[in-house]
């Protein structure tokens, strides 16, 4: 197909969200606020990592069509520099405290589920199948993260403040989720990609409903980082990604060509 390079780029956008957020959640393993929660959060990380790998597998097939043989999942995950990563700025933000982690998760999960819902209707059968499978997992992620927003927002004075601070700080990264650049516009027109802009209103209503129950205030929509076509999806990241990748890629890059 003529638009394979664009489609490849779009697959990286989907894959990198999973890989990068799973990497962040991996930092929590063994350090969660309760044993049960530690185990549950790791399941979310494992799901996202699995989804990332499914998107990368398809990315490779697409890349192989115009630049054979195409890079494998590990070459894509461990040998790309920060500027080649296509994840949203939101998912690369540091874990912070548990409210920061849960707010990041909730804002993403709510969008992620809607996006996958739209992608399940993609004209590209592979995309539709992966999205349908991932949506089942993400529905549960959203249940959990929405639940935690409510528990923290409606918990103690301290947890309420931390939840509100987390939402306020992360809000600036939410606009990027609904931005549509030339690459996505073309794929949307072809019926392959989801129209992210159309998700904004339903996302806002869903988030508002949870915040209402959590007695959290909806932040005002000011300037949004990365929403103007110069953000994570275009490879322009926050400083956090570079540090994350330095850690993630160190072993793989120290032994070029090695198999593990």
């Amino acid at each position: 197909m003529d638009d394979d390079p664009q489609l490849f780029d779009y697959m990286l956008r989907l894959a990198d969200n999973g890989i990068v957020l799973a990497q962040r959640l991996g930092e929590w393993v063994g350090k969660g606020p309760a044993l049960e929660e530690d185990i549950a959060l790791t399941n979310v990380g494992l799901d996202l990592l699995g989804q990332g790998r499914m998107w990368l597998a398809y990315a490779r097939e697409i890349e192989a069509r115009y630049a054979p043989p195409g890079r494998g999942e590990d070459a894509l995950a461990f040998l790309r520099d920060g500027g080649e990563f296509r994840n949203l700025l939101l998912v690369e933000q540091p874990n912070g405290n548990y409210a920061d982690t849960m707010a990041r998760q909730f804002l993403f999960d709510q969008w992620h589920l809607m996006l996958l819902g739209a992608l399940a209707g993609s004209k590209d059968a592979r995309i539709a199948a992966i999205a349908a499978k991932a949506a089942k997992e993400v529905r549960y992620h959203l249940e959990r993260s929405a639940d935690w927003m409510i528990r923290l927002g409606d918990g103690t004075e301290l947890s309420h403040r931390r939840a509100q601070d987390a939402v306020d700080a992360l809000w600036v990264y939410t606009g990027e989720m609904f931005s549509v650049d030339a690459i996505e516009r073309g794929l949307v027109a072809a019926g392959v990609a989801a129209d992210a802009a159309s998700l904004r209103d339903p996302w806002r209503s869903a988030v508002a409903a949870v915040f209402d129950e959590a007695s959290l205030a909806m932040p005002g929509d000011g300037w949004m980082q990365g929403a103007s076509g110069r953000g994570g999806k275009q490879g322009i990241h926050t400083e956090h990604l570079g540090h994350m990748l330095a850690e993630m890629q160190i072993v793989a890059r120290s032994h070029p060509g090695a198999r593990w």
Binding site: E36, I39, Y140, E143
Partner: peptide, 14 residues
């Protein structure tokens, strides 16, 4: 351990 039934069910799943 869980604070309520809903959390217990979710934790049990995990």
């Amino acid at each position: 351990h869980a604070v309520d039934a809903q959390m217990a069910i979710r934790n049990a799943r995990d």
